[in-house]
């Protein structure tokens, strides 16, 4: 048997396959399709201090090899999560991370404080990279001082795993990664969506209600792979790679580039069983290459 477990900052994941926030609901949406407890970690929908209705419709545009979304962090707020969702997901059989977003630093702090009380939530993913909100979100993740400030303040109140999710919409992503690492991030996940746009030529109108939106899917994979490689070479903390992973081969590429774990996002929409297939594919790759542990291929890219 190959060892699929990986270390992620303060934590040990049973395998490197995680789900990306905003694509996996609260996990229960996928329970009909597979045994979700087999997944290494589930990152639930972006959660904010208060209820958010998100952006108006239309929120989605299909693109060649991907999609643009402008959901805008629709969620019922952290109190609703604690009272109504946490009891239904806490025994789902794998590690649950809550993706935390905010319009102000105080929002992040207060949300993280509330989540710190939940026994069965071993970590949060700090979302400083959502491109679809007017205030906060990506604005925090596109400059080193503001990214560092959010992490520093949340670190004071949140004692468990802090994974920081970075935006690719920056000039030098390694600099942002170093800035958040210095303030106590336990791990770094990337990439969030790339800012993009779609136009309906017949109507001379943007397709999305917000004009711009976040691009995901295989269209962004080469960019994501490059950024994961750059960040993994720059920081000491574990890196979680994502961006257009559709199959085990894609996932292994990210691991070779330096990711300790990976997240699957948009692919869940097309194949709701993809997480388990990727997990089985990684195992098969390790057996085929006579490798005992997935840890041996983290950053094993030969240049």
């Amino acid at each position: 048997m190959v060892d699929l477990s990986v270390a992620l900052g303060k934590m040990q994941l049973k395998n490197p396959v995680m789900t990306a926030s905003g694509t996996f609901g609260y996990g229960t949406e996928y329970a009909d399709f597979m045994d979700v407890s087999r997944i290494g970690g589930i990152i639930v929908k972006g959660t904010t201090l208060r209820d958010r209705q998100g952006n108006p419709y239309p929120r989605m545009a299909e693109t060649p090899s991907g999609m643009l979304n402008a959901v805008g962090l629709q969620n019922k707020g952290v109190e609703y999560f604690i009272e109504h969702i946490y009891p239904t997901v806490k025994n789902i059989g794998t590690d649950i991370f809550v993706n935390v977003s905010g319009s102000t630093v105080e929002d992040y702090i207060e949300t993280a404080e509330r989540l710190n009380e939940l026994d069965k939530i071993p970590g949060i993913e700090l979302n400083i990279s959502c491109p679809n909100v007017k205030e906060g979100g990506m604005a925090f993740g596109t400059s080193c001082p503001s990214a560092a400030q959010v992490v520093k303040e949340v670190r004071r109140v949140y004692k468990k795993e802090i994974m920081v999710k970075l935006s690719p919409n920056v000039t030098n992503i390694a600099d942002i990664a170093l800035a958040v690492e210095a303030q106590g991030a336990d791990s770094i996940s990337l990439i969030n969506t790339l800012l993009g746009m779609a136009i309906d030529a017949e109507k001379r109108r943007p397709v999305l209600s917000t004009v711009t939106g976040g691009l995901s899917g295989p269209a962004v994979k080469p960019v994501a792979l490059r950024m994961v490689w750059q960040v993994a070479n720059a920081v000491k903390v574990p890196v979680v790679g994502m961006g257009g992973i559709m199959n085990a081969s894609d996932a292994i590429e990210f691991i070779l580039a330096g990711a300790s774990a990976i997240q699957i996002g948009t692919a869940n929409f097309i194949d709701p069983q993809v997480c388990v297939k990727v997990l089985e594919g990684i195992e098969e790759y390790l057996i085929r290459h006579k490798i005992n542990s997935v840890k041996e291929i983290i950053g094993a890219l030969e240049i």
Binding site: F24, R59, M60, T266, N268, F269
Partner: peptide, 12 residues
């Protein structure tokens, strides 16, 4: 327009 069809993406 939908991406998933089962309540995960919140696009529709």
């Amino acid at each position: 327009t939908m991406a998933c069809g089962f309540g995960a993406c919140l696009c529709c």
